[in-house]
Amino acid sequence: MAYHRIEPEVAGELGEGTDMDTSVHPPNVRSLHYEITDWLGDHILESYPVYIVSEQLAEALTRSGLGRFELRDCRVTLSEEAEELLEGSDLPKWRWFVPTGTAGQDHFGVTDNARLVVSDEGLDVLNNFSLSNALIEPYD
């Protein structure tokens, strides 16, 4: 099975409501506040070392039965700029997507440096939604 390293769209940053331990690397994020500063339309977003997915994608991931990941609640807000830029846009609700597998072995995994790696089948699920601003490359 082939695997792919994905760098999703970075649509914002870790907001001030994020609770994380920065004494370790990757930082250990205990609770997540993702502040969107703009959104180009993808359904999976990143702000190192975390990923969020739209509720629709979260449901599709769950339905796929592919392991291994968790979906957690998170707070997502818009910055002042995003309020202006995205006025009138239909933004989805978001879930915190936590891949728990091993990169190159499981359908959804992360490397030691928290970079997302997905299998062919995992990528098929993601590709059912907008992924046009992600960088995707083969993972050996």
Partner: peptide, 22 residues
């Protein structure tokens, strides 16, 4: 600039910073 080109560039800037953090 807040046109679509500017927004794409801003997205690239955010990505580069994200790589810096990693």
């Amino acid at each position: 600039p807040n046109g679509i080109n500017g927004r794409v560039h801003l997205s690239q800037i955010r990505r580069e910073w994200n790589q810096f953090y990693a």
